[in-house]
Amino acid sequence: DTLSIHQLAAQGDLVQLMSHLQQGSSLLNVPDDRGFTPLMWAAAFGEIAVVKFLLQMGADPHTLAKERESTLSLASIQGYTDIVLLLLDHGVDVNIYDWNGGTPLLYAVHGNHVKCVEALLAKGADLTMEADSGYSPMDLAVALGFKKVQQAIENHVLKLLQNN
Protein backbone atom coordinates (compact mmCIF):
# COMPACT_ATOMS: atom_id res chain seq x y z
CA ASP A 1 0.00 0.00 0.00
CA THR A 2 1.15 3.53 -0.41
CA LEU A 3 2.18 5.91 2.36
CA SER A 4 -0.25 8.66 3.34
CA ILE A 5 0.56 12.21 2.36
CA HIS A 6 1.31 12.81 6.08
CA GLN A 7 3.90 10.02 6.19
CA LEU A 8 5.45 11.24 2.93
CA ALA A 9 5.70 14.78 4.40
CA ALA A 10 7.25 13.45 7.62
CA GLN A 11 9.81 11.40 5.69
CA GLY A 12 10.70 14.33 3.42
CA ASP A 13 9.78 12.35 0.31
CA LEU A 14 9.27 15.35 -2.01
CA VAL A 15 9.01 13.32 -5.23
CA GLN A 16 6.19 11.07 -4.01
CA LEU A 17 4.57 14.04 -2.29
CA MET A 18 4.46 15.94 -5.59
CA SER A 19 2.85 13.05 -7.43
CA HIS A 20 0.40 12.56 -4.57
CA LEU A 21 -0.61 16.22 -4.73
CA GLN A 22 -1.11 16.07 -8.49
CA GLN A 23 -4.11 13.85 -7.82
CA GLY A 24 -5.87 16.81 -6.23
CA SER A 25 -4.89 20.01 -4.48
CA SER A 26 -7.55 19.28 -1.84
CA LEU A 27 -4.97 16.97 -0.31
CA LEU A 28 -2.75 19.97 0.47
CA ASN A 29 -4.34 20.73 3.84
CA VAL A 30 -6.01 17.36 4.47
CA PRO A 31 -6.09 16.74 8.25
CA ASP A 32 -5.34 13.29 9.70
CA ASP A 33 -7.57 11.80 12.41
CA ARG A 34 -6.11 14.20 15.00
CA GLY A 35 -6.37 17.21 12.74
CA PHE A 36 -2.69 17.34 11.76
CA THR A 37 -2.04 18.62 8.24
CA PRO A 38 0.84 17.50 5.98
CA LEU A 39 2.56 20.83 6.80
CA MET A 40 2.37 19.99 10.53
CA TRP A 41 3.91 16.57 9.93
CA ALA A 42 6.74 18.07 7.87
CA ALA A 43 7.41 20.76 10.51
CA ALA A 44 7.25 18.25 13.38
CA PHE A 45 9.95 16.13 11.73
CA GLY A 46 12.16 19.01 10.59
CA GLU A 47 11.67 18.54 6.85
CA ILE A 48 12.28 22.17 5.83
CA ALA A 49 12.38 21.43 2.09
CA VAL A 50 8.91 19.90 2.35
CA VAL A 51 7.71 22.81 4.53
CA LYS A 52 8.94 25.28 1.89
CA PHE A 53 7.37 23.27 -0.93
CA LEU A 54 3.99 22.94 0.81
CA LEU A 55 3.94 26.66 1.67
CA GLN A 56 4.73 27.51 -1.96
CA MET A 57 1.86 25.24 -3.01
CA GLY A 58 -0.42 27.29 -0.75
CA ALA A 59 -0.59 25.09 2.35
CA ASP A 60 -2.14 26.99 5.24
CA PRO A 61 0.32 27.57 8.13
CA HIS A 62 -2.46 28.94 10.39
CA THR A 63 -4.50 25.73 10.60
CA LEU A 64 -4.87 24.31 14.14
CA ALA A 65 -5.27 20.63 14.97
CA LYS A 66 -8.04 19.30 17.22
CA GLU A 67 -6.42 20.45 20.47
CA ARG A 68 -5.36 23.72 18.88
CA GLU A 69 -1.87 22.36 18.16
CA SER A 70 -0.13 24.67 15.69
CA THR A 71 2.56 24.08 13.09
CA LEU A 72 4.68 26.70 14.87
CA SER A 73 4.46 24.87 18.22
CA LEU A 74 5.33 21.54 16.60
CA ALA A 75 8.50 23.09 15.13
CA SER A 76 9.30 24.90 18.40
CA ILE A 77 9.09 21.79 20.64
CA GLN A 78 11.72 20.16 18.42
CA GLY A 79 13.84 23.31 18.15
CA TYR A 80 13.67 23.58 14.35
CA THR A 81 14.54 27.29 14.39
CA ASP A 82 14.81 27.58 10.60
CA ILE A 83 11.26 26.27 10.21
CA VAL A 84 10.04 28.50 13.08
CA LEU A 85 11.45 31.58 11.32
CA LEU A 86 10.00 30.49 7.97
CA LEU A 87 6.54 30.12 9.52
CA LEU A 88 6.81 33.50 11.22
CA ASP A 89 7.77 35.03 7.87
CA HIS A 90 4.46 33.63 6.61
CA GLY A 91 2.64 35.66 9.25
CA VAL A 92 1.68 33.02 11.80
CA ASP A 93 0.94 34.31 15.33
CA VAL A 94 4.06 33.91 17.51
CA ASN A 95 1.84 33.72 20.61
CA ILE A 96 -0.70 31.13 19.42
CA TYR A 97 -1.73 28.96 22.39
CA ASP A 98 -3.32 25.52 22.60
CA TRP A 99 -5.67 23.69 24.93
CA ASN A 100 -3.22 23.44 27.85
CA GLY A 101 -2.05 27.00 27.39
CA GLY A 102 1.08 25.92 25.54
CA THR A 103 2.73 28.60 23.39
CA PRO A 104 5.62 28.17 20.93
CA LEU A 105 7.91 29.88 23.46
CA LEU A 106 6.85 27.55 26.28
CA TYR A 107 7.48 24.54 24.04
CA ALA A 108 10.90 25.83 22.96
CA VAL A 109 11.79 26.29 26.64
CA HIS A 110 10.40 22.83 27.49
CA GLY A 111 12.62 21.36 24.80
CA ASN A 112 15.68 23.33 26.05
CA HIS A 113 16.18 24.86 22.59
CA VAL A 114 18.13 28.08 23.27
CA LYS A 115 18.39 29.26 19.66
CA CYS A 116 14.68 28.71 19.14
CA VAL A 117 13.86 30.59 22.37
CA GLU A 118 16.02 33.49 21.21
CA ALA A 119 14.40 33.53 17.77
CA LEU A 120 10.87 33.53 19.21
CA LEU A 121 11.73 36.29 21.69
CA ALA A 122 13.27 38.38 18.91
CA LYS A 123 10.02 38.00 16.96
CA GLY A 124 7.91 39.27 19.86
CA ALA A 125 7.01 36.15 21.82
CA ASP A 126 5.17 37.22 24.99
CA LEU A 127 7.13 36.32 28.13
CA THR A 128 4.11 36.77 30.36
CA MET A 129 1.92 34.09 28.76
CA GLU A 130 1.67 31.14 31.16
CA ALA A 131 0.67 27.53 30.64
CA ASP A 132 -2.67 26.60 32.26
CA SER A 133 -0.67 25.34 35.25
CA GLY A 134 0.61 28.85 35.82
CA TYR A 135 4.18 28.30 34.57
CA SER A 136 5.66 31.26 32.69
CA PRO A 137 8.57 30.63 30.30
CA MET A 138 11.02 31.77 33.00
CA ASP A 139 9.32 29.63 35.69
CA LEU A 140 9.62 26.66 33.38
CA ALA A 141 13.30 27.27 32.55
CA VAL A 142 14.10 27.53 36.29
CA ALA A 143 11.96 24.52 37.26
CA LEU A 144 13.60 22.38 34.56
CA GLY A 145 17.09 23.69 35.35
CA PHE A 146 17.77 24.95 31.84
CA LYS A 147 20.42 27.58 32.63
CA LYS A 148 21.18 28.68 29.04
CA VAL A 149 17.49 29.18 28.29
CA GLN A 150 17.12 31.14 31.51
CA GLN A 151 20.10 33.28 30.46
CA ALA A 152 18.57 33.90 27.02
CA ILE A 153 15.33 35.10 28.62
CA GLU A 154 17.21 37.36 31.06
CA ASN A 155 19.31 38.85 28.24
CA HIS A 156 16.12 39.56 26.29
CA VAL A 157 14.51 41.33 29.26
CA LEU A 158 17.66 43.41 29.78
CA LYS A 159 17.61 44.43 26.15
CA LEU A 160 13.96 45.47 26.44
CA LEU A 161 14.75 47.55 29.53
CA GLN A 162 17.69 49.25 27.85
CA ASN A 163 15.63 50.13 24.78
CA ASN A 164 12.80 51.77 26.74
Binding site: Q7, L74, A143
Partner: peptide
Protein backbone atom coordinates in the same frame (compact mmCIF):
# COMPACT_ATOMS: atom_id res chain seq x y z
CA UNK B 1 10.05 -2.83 1.20
CA UNK B 2 9.11 -2.61 4.86
CA UNK B 3 7.28 0.69 5.25
CA UNK B 4 8.68 2.53 8.26
CA UNK B 5 5.95 4.67 9.64
CA UNK B 6 6.48 7.79 11.68
CA UNK B 7 4.42 8.19 14.83
CA UNK B 8 1.95 11.05 14.87
CA UNK B 9 3.40 14.40 15.96
CA UNK B 10 2.44 15.47 19.46
CA UNK B 11 3.04 18.18 22.00
CA UNK B 12 3.94 17.29 25.61
CA UNK B 13 1.93 18.47 28.59
CA UNK B 14 4.15 21.37 29.58
CA UNK B 15 3.74 21.09 33.32
CA UNK B 16 3.85 17.30 33.63
CA UNK B 17 5.91 16.30 36.64
CA UNK B 18 6.34 19.87 37.84
CA UNK B 19 5.07 21.04 41.25
CA UNK B 20 1.84 23.02 41.14
CA UNK B 21 2.60 26.73 41.12
Amino acid sequence: SQLSLYTSPSLPNISLGLPAT
